[in-house]
Amino acid sequence: MLLDFEQPIAALEGKLLEMQKLADESDVDVSEAVTALQAKIKALKKETYANLTRWQRVQLSRHPERPQMLDYIGGMVDKFVELHGDRTVGDDKAMVGGLGELDGHTVMFIGQQKGHNTKERQYRNFGMANPEGYRKALRLMKLAEKFNVPIVTLIDTMGAFPGLEAEERGQGEAIARNLKEMFMLKVPVICIIIGEGASGGALGIAIGDRVLMLENTWYSVISPESCSSILWRTWDYKEQAAEALKLTAIDMHKAGLVDGIVKEPLGGAHTAPEQMIETLKNTLLKTLKELGAIAPADRISQRIDKFSAMGVVVE
C-alpha cells in the first residue's frame, strides 16, 4: 500500500529499477543516469519526510506494514514466553504480554497488537483492549514487580474498546486502576508509543519513568477523526483537527508531555523494519541502564513529580 505522499518517491524508484534492468540486459552504460536518479530520490525523500504534515504522520503511524508489538518482540527478544489471561474474565487478544530476554536482561513486555491482515485484525480486535486486557496488563506488571523485572510497554491503539461488555466489566475502572498502580511500581517502567496512542486506551499502559514516541506516531486525547466529528460535526476536518491537536512526537516532546523521540528510518518504520527494531532495542538497553542506576523510591517519586507538573494554568 502506498500513501499519497509516498507515490512520487515510489514512481522514481520504479524508474530506477527499470533503468538498472535495462543496463543488465544491454550494453548501454547508464551508470551516470543511475547515480543522478539515486541522488534525486534521496533528495526527494529527505524533503518529503522533513516536511510531513501532522495528518501525514498519523497516516504513517497507521501504515498496515508498520512493525507492531509482536514484530518487535520477534526481532529483538530471545526466549519470549507469552503469558495469558487476567485470572477473572478471560484472555484479551488485543493486549499481549510476556517475559523475554533483551540482550541477556529479563524484561516484562506488554502492548497492544493490532494485526497485519483482516483475519488477524479481527482476532486482535484491531488492538482495542477490553477491561480484561488492562487487568491482564496490570497482573503482569505486578508479577514483574514481584520478581524485580523491569517493564517495557509498547503502545499502539485506536483506543480502549467502546463496547457493551466493556462497559459492563468496567472499562473506566480498569484503566483508572492501572494509572494509579503504575505510579507505585518499584521496578523501572519504559513506555514506547510505536504507532497510535489514542487517549485513555493508550495511557492505561503508559505511566512510565520514560515515555518515548517513535518519530512518526501520534499520542493525544482523541483521534483526529473523532475530534473533527465532535467539533465540526463531520469527519472532513481530520487534517485540520490533527493540526489543532498537536499530536505528533515533535509536538508532544516540545510540550514536555513525553520524554523523547526515537528516530525512524527515512521513509518511516515500515520501509526498513529491521533497522527500526534495532534502533528501538538499543534505545531500550540504554534507557534500562539509566533507570537501573536510580533507587526504586526515587524512581517512584520522580515518576509522580513528572506527571504532576504537566498542564498549563494561569495563577
Binding site: L179, M184, S199, L203, L257, S308
Partner: peptide, 25 residues
C-alpha cells in the same frame, strides 16, 4: 476530556491518579 487542551488534558488523568496514589498510601 477537554479536547482543546489535547495532550495536556489526557495527562490530567495521570496527574490526579498519581495524587490519589499518594493519598491512598
Amino acid at each position: 476530556a477537554r479536547m482543546m487542551e489535547a495532550g495536556y488534558s489526557l495527562m490530567q488523568m495521570a496527574k490526579t491518579s498519581a495524587k490519589l496514589a499518594l493519598l491512598s498510601e
